[in-house]
Design a protein around this nucleic acid. Sequence first.
RNA 1: GGCGCCAUGGCCAAGUGGUAAGGCAAGGCUCUGCAAAAGCCUCACCGCCGGUUCGAGUCCGGCUGGCGCCUCCA
Length: 458
Amino acid sequence: MQIFDTLTNKKHEIIPLAADGVLRLYVCGVTPYSESHVGHAMQAIVFDVLRRYLDWRGIPVKHVQNFTDIDDKLIDRAQRLGIEMSELAEQNIADYHRQLKELNVLPAHEYPRVTELVPEIVRFIEGLIEKGFAYASGGDVYYRVREFGGARYGALSKRDIDDLVSGARVDPTELKDDPLDFALWKAAKPGEPSWESPWGQGRPGWHIECSAMALKTLGEQIDIHGGGADLIFPHHTNEIAQSEAYTGKTPFAATWMHNAHLQLGDEKMSKSLGNLVTINQALATHSADALRLFLITSHYRRPLKYAPESLDAAKAGAERLREAAFAAQPEQMYTPPVDGEATRERFIAAMDDDLNTPQALAALFDLTREINRGRDRGRDIRPAQETLRELAGVLGLTLAQPQRGSQEAAPFIDLLVQLRSELRAAKQWQLADHVRDGLTSLGIEVKDGPEGSAWKQV
RNA sequence: GGCGCCAUGGCCAAGUGGUAAGGCAAGGCUCUGCAAAAGCCUCACCGCCGGUUCGAGUCCGGCUGGCGCCUCCA
């Protein structure tokens, strides 16, 4: 399988570096200061699909995703709410887990948090100071970017280090030797949560956590480091500088994989801009399958616009897949059976090429048509259905019937449908249609077939 | 201002040298008591202008429009 690498701007073959053959995947997660939005879901789903696919192809994956639970916004918001920072983080992390589960996203193997790794972070910073890549200054500690090398520093984001200087924020209160330098450790301000360190009370800077977490959970070098495209600079740029300076090993990550952003209207969906749709809001009107399908009908490196019409289209598409995957086998079977082997090959070829989910889906929809056609012609469609369900599962689609109504209603609906069948048998068309219209208005769709009437919720 | 990305049918969206995947929507037909579902059929001169090539959405140059990053951000 090949994945596009941001650092080299090329597609790389993905081969686990470690001798045990386990692929190390580190993904930058969320800062849990508020509810997560569909953009976060998109990111989680992209890496979920990657992981499911690699597993399916026989490459075991160890997946680590962090929570940044020490952060300015977290501190501010907790203070405004009058609760502890840890409590606020805890709530949002619990929500995040719950929502991703609803979206059928497999949990990462580990979810390290900054608050749990402060000693490791301190040790990491000490190591950088010893090697001359960092310096303490007035209770803060900064990373010396020029020590690492300008060309190397700008490689990931394709930036000239001197252009960065002019754009760098100049804060007169900061104690940097060079405007490019960034904070590894920040001295505590009054009223803020803080931890002990050789430089006094304080807290870790933003970037250092991921270097320390990756080192602790996955080792000195990892296979794929992922996250949203907005993290390329400065977050991932700084991670490379820290990790490679500390371990002396290059590369820190064999492949840098970044997903493009979800847009709402004409702008990036983001917490700071305030233009967002939360995962809960999306799940209130659409199933996990519909949402996932919508998000993977576009390639992960292309920006995608969130629009209700697009979600509705995905909903209809998911329904189409589901109908075909579970359509009843016709009674009479003629040879040859419909199988999905050609589809499987197309699916693999598409996914191997930088996770081309749109093409993989196209293959599944073509198989859907073959299944429907086969069913109409009395062929054995079961092998193809099995393949369809298997491949959909690799994309994390459950093809499950949405369960929105109460299960208790089912016997009553059965009764009404049965009654209607009797009316039809008696050619009482008006009454039969009246029952059907009534059910339709309640969200129950009735379908008449040769073997009687079936119903489903829509 | 610097760096980068994108512009494909009514909507969404693949395709990066040999004459356009897929989904949704729409229209016609088949099936059906009528529907629904399903099937079959129909629906693209690939933003504009030059260039390279036997041949270009696909490569090169220019133009126009849009987006992202450069500051917290998935």
